[in-house]
Write a protein that binds this DNA or RNA. Structure first.
Length: 921
RNA sequence: GCUCGGGUGGUGGAAUAGGUAGACACGCAGGACUUAAAAUCCUGUGGACAGUAAUGUCCGUACGGGUUCGAUUCCCGUCCCGAGCACCA
């Protein structure tokens, strides 16, 4: 019997499916383990070989943990709401529901061929009303809560109202954006609308005016992580800043907890660093400056991390979008300021991004008073100051900040150095080191001492206070699109009202047109009766990250109609032990999910503060493109190594026509009518193609579909080969050149069980020490490698062991049976078949991981006595502790050793065969 | 500009509490089996030099220094590649 992967894989996939082999339930007697993949967005293109990389790794880990006796939750689903499907609907008129269903079907077929051990009973889809009910439910909870910075958690809005009735809002410590203070009496005198407006400033999900990333081409706003370099991540359309009223989530309230929570997570340092950058904590002080425009005097606050440089403040700068612009512009400067503001408005976000460090600005005519020097300092406006960070105004210290320096040089403003010996003739001195000068009471202190000293003085003189700022902004939560979760919100006399929870889910209405309505409103404006009890419903929908923020919780209890996840299920499964996915979600999904989870934790719906204990980022699989070389103005193609003799054009060729860089010339002729009569100049009888690494995409003809590989080599080969390609976390090109080696290995593995005639040759003979040693070395290696995610080196170990057993002609059951278990996470189909051949049914999934016994692998060095005439003979590296005279005897004759250790006493010698490799003196 | 990774044969990659560099695989070359092919198996394969040969010597982990008996691994500097952030005061 040959290794017939096609039959074997078909057989066992249907067996696993019909026997529900991988179905899991709560089993309190067993320890749980939760392995999660980042669920895919089912796009029209289907899966390519890059997608399964992470899924294979997580499947290996899941199967391994199962063999180790864990009750493993390993689910899969689809992140189905999103822009591409909607764009497709606009172009073709095909409803997104339909497109999504088709794409999911295709994804499922492709996934099924790879032999994953998912519990498909728990499959979820974010666009399913029974799922998005809980997305809407969470939104309502956020609407009904506010963040108490005193208790450090979310609390019901009812508490807040009681507090307002007692003391107004002056005592309460909350994350909010309420501009005014009011007393209890004032609160009581507010109209209902006024009260709602105030509460909106405290809710965790709130409707608020804000500057947003507006993408005109997509007709929607986008979150910060959906915009890169001034264009949309999806589609690459320009994005502009616009003030709009949008639903937002008060993620910023959780900034400190999101930062602290990173500490104990087993995530890569680079990923944690990305999140820290995104949260952007900076400690400093807010300082008050008295500002006069000639007629009025105001108190203005700025934020700085360098309070120590206060004596070097020679001007102030305001962001062009700041509300203070009007107040500080004196009448005689109005014209120039307006011209400048007009100029700034003409620039798109992209231009402002790409033209950084361009120095522009205008003087307002107002002056501030430096509270320490008493100097009058001019107040300018410049686009290099951002409205959204700090207070939208800065104190400029040109000597010690490079941006301020360039600005000062351009507009001829004074530069006062504050650090002894620093040279500011050519540039600013930004480093936080040196000794202060020109700084009054700070003179003589080091910068490190001066910073806290300055803040203390500022606080003592009541000119300001310590302050921590975060770059993390609240998440904009509305999208002017159709294909997303509807908001459970209606408007009663302009006041946003929540739907009762009992009316969830609020289902999307079916539409005929998915374009924005003619008056620029979102597509839902086209829906008939988009109302609740006669009141209009919110027409925006939620963004893509809404549905993916808590999906890992839903997997724990996907059938529950009463709650997101039952307390019982949540307490059993707790959190995700291992999360595998791409690094592209570092500042999007992984921040929102952590926020969402922390919010639900505050409300007591989940038992863990952090959702993902360990996270592994798989690398991207790039495409390996192949090229042919056409001689200019001919239809003749020349092989790679001969091309330099001609003038040629490089042309992409479909990688499916190429094997091991050799072109199938007949297939090439058939590929495209243009090449029907192509001629070839061969080298050594074949046409060799050139190659290059590019992104895997249709236009480069380098997309490799896993189905093709499965048909040719089988899923087990594909799984092993993807792992063999290199370290999981590393990005690497897809390259089929080595796949034969893995396939050959599986055939060789098969032949341990069957001879050439297909007879089962497994024997019951007892294994000897040599064979046991091979086995136990492998057990040890597999165990260690899987725990460390070194899947590529395990495969080498398998190959070595199988080669050794083949050489020994070992077909003993006691060796082969554990070997099947060891390989089953990697190549489950062949393992399952051989498991059955050994008479061990029903499933290898119920087996136990073989126990490693170090006794079998131990080297007893007394068996290899020291026979020393210039060389030491030992089998493997080991530590020896010998008596002094023995050591002296050993090193006699080894000149090198003698030289190294002259005059020193040796404590220990480490040896390998034939050589001393370590001498501890 | 800042932060974090990373530079090892023709190729993918092994090996770092410092200790036989190049495991394993691909490719290539030679051989066996075969009428032939496929499949399978065996041998060789970092470079240079010497030798009929077994073998030996030297050079080799981006580059230049340092620590050490010993450095791919640790330290300092330089160059290159990748990722992320980017006027965050």
């Amino acid at each position: 019997m040959e290794y017939n992967f096609f039959e074997i894989e078909k057989k066992w996939q249907s067996f696993w499916s019909s026997h529900k082999t991988f179905k899991v339930d709560i089993e309190p007697s067993k320890p749980k383990f939760y392995v999660l993949d980042m669920f895919p967005y089912p796009s029209g293109a289907g899966l390519h070989v890059g997608h399964p990389l992470g899924y294979i790794a997580s499947d290996i880990y899941s199967r391994f943990k199962r063999l180790k006796g864990f009750n493993v939750l390993h689910p899969m689903g689809y992140d189905a709401f999103g822009l591409p499907t909607e764009q497709y609907a606009i172009q073709t008129g095909q409803p997104p529901e339909q497109t999504t269903a088709n794409n999911i079907k295709r994804y499922r077929e492709q996934l099924d061929k790879l032999g994953f051990s998912y519990d498909w009973e728990r499959e979820i889809c974010t666009c399913d009303p029974s799922y998005y009910k809980w997305t809407q439910w969470a939104f309502l909870k956020m609407f009904h809560h506010w963040y108490n910075t005193d208790s450090g958690k979310a609390e019901p809005v009812e508490n807040l109202i009681k507090e307002f009735e007692r003391h107004g809002n002056s005592k309460i410590k909350a994350a909010h954006h309420c501009p005014d203070l009011f007393s209890a009496e004032e609160w009581k005198s507010f109209t209902e609308k006024e009260k709602e407006d105030v509460l909106m400033c405290y809710r965790i999900a709130y409707l608020g005016e804000t500057s947003v990333n507006w993408c005109p081409a997509l007709g929607t706003v986008l979150a910060n992580d959906e915009v890169k370099e001034g264009v949309s991540v999806r589609g690459g359309y320009p994005v502009v800043q616009k003030k709009m009223k949008q639903w937002q989530l008060r993620v910023s309230a959780y900034a400190e907890r999101l930062l602290e929570g990173l500490e104990d997570l087993a995530w890569s340092d680079s990923l944690k660093e990305m999140q820290r950058n995104w949260i952007g904590k900076s400690e400093g002080a807010e300082m008050e400056f008295s500002v006069s425009n000639g007629s009025d005097t105001f108190s203005m606050t700025v934020f700085t991390t360098r309070a120590d440089t206060i004596f070097g403040v020679t001007f102030m700068v305001l962001a062009p979008e700041s509300d203070w612009v009007e107040k500080l512009t004196v009448p005689e400067r109005k014209k120039q300021v307006q011209e400048y503001l007009d100029y700034v408005k003409t620039k798109t976000e992209r231009e402002r991004m790409t033209q950084t460090h361009r120095v522009t600005g205008v003087f307002t005519g107002s002056y501030a008073l430096n509270p320490f020097t008493g100097n009058q300092i001019p107040f300018w406006i410049s686009e290099y100051v951002l409205a959204g960070y700090g207070t939208g105004a800065i104190m400029a210290v040109p000597a010690h900040d490079s941006r301020d320096y360039i600005f000062a040089k351009t507009y001829d403003l004074p530069i006062v150095p504050l650090i002894e010996g620093c040279d500011v003739s050519m540039g600013s001195f930004d480093a936080k080191e040196g000794v202060m000068c020109n700084s009054g009471f700070l003179n003589g202190l080091s910068v490190q001492e001066a910073i806290p000293a300055a803040i203390e003085e500022v606080e003592r003189r009541k000119l300001g206070h310590r302050k921590i700022n975060y770059r993390l902004r609240d998440a904009i939560f509305s999208r002017q699109r159709y294909w997303g979760e509807p908001f459970p919100i209606y408007y009663q006399n302009e006041i946003p009202r929540p739907l009762p929870e009992t009316s969830l889910p609020l289902k999307l209405p079916g539409l005929y047109s998915f374009k924005p309505s003619s008056n620029g409103e979102p597509p839902l404006a086209n829906a008939k009766n988009w109302t609740y009890e006669g009141y209009p419903l919110e027409k925006s929908t939620m963004p893509g990250f809404a549905g993916s923020s808590a999906y890992y919780l839903r997997y724990m209890d996907p059938w529950n109609t009463e709650c997101l996840v039952s307390e019982q299920a949540n307490h059993y499964w707790q959190d995700v032990d291992l999360y595998i996915g791409g690094t592209e979600h570092a500042t999007g999904h992984l921040i929102y999910s952590r926020f969402w989870n922390k919010f639900l934790y505050d409300l007591g719906f989940v038992c863990k503060d952090e959702p993902f204990k360990k996270l592994v980022n798989q690398g991207m699989i790039q495409g390996r493109s192949n090229f042919v070389y056409r001689i200019k103005n001919t239809n003749t193609f020349v092989s790679l190594n001969l091309k330099d003799n001609y003038e040629t054009t490089e042309i992409h060729v479909d990688v499916n026509l190429v094997q091991n860089d050799r072109l199938d010339t007949e297939a090439f002729r058939a590929w495209n009518p243009e090449y029907k009569n192509a001629e070839f100049i061969l080298e050594e009888g074949t046409y060799i193609c050139g190659w290059g690494i590019e992104k895997m995409s249709k236009s480069m003809f380098n997309v490799v579909n896993p189905d093709t590989i499965c048909a040719q080599y089988g899923a087990d080969t594909l799984r092993m080969y993807e792992m063999f390609l290199g370290p999981l976390e590393q990005s690497k090109p897809w390259d089929t050149n080595g796949i034969d080696g893995v396939h050959r290995f599986l055939k060789k593995f098969w032949r341990l069980f069957f001879d050439n005639n297909g007879s089962n040759i497994v024997s019951n003979e007892k294994p000897d020490a040599k064979e046991l040693k091979i086995l136990h070395n492998l057990i040890h290696k597999v165990e260690e490698d899987i725990e460390h995610f070194s899947f590529n080196t395990t495969i080498s170990a398998f190959m070595i062991s199988v080669n050794k057993l083949t050489d020994l002609d070992c077909h003993k059951k006691d060796i082969l049976e554990p070997l099947v278990v060891l390989i089953s996470p990697y190549a489950p189909h062949i393992a399952e078949e051989l498991w059955a051949q050994l008479g061990r049914i029903p499933s290898v999934a119920n087996a136990n991981f073989p126990v490693f016994d170090p006794e079998f692998t131990k080297e007893n060095f007394y068996e290899y006595p020291v026979s020393f005439n210039g060389k030491l003979r030992f089998k493997r590296s080991m530590d020896l502790t010998l008596k002094k005279e023995e050591i002296e005897k050993l090193i006699q004759g080894d000149e090198r050793t003698l030289k190294y250790t002259e005059g020193k006493s040796i404590k220990k010698i480490i040896v390998v065969p034939g050589k001393i490799i370590n001498i501890v003196v």
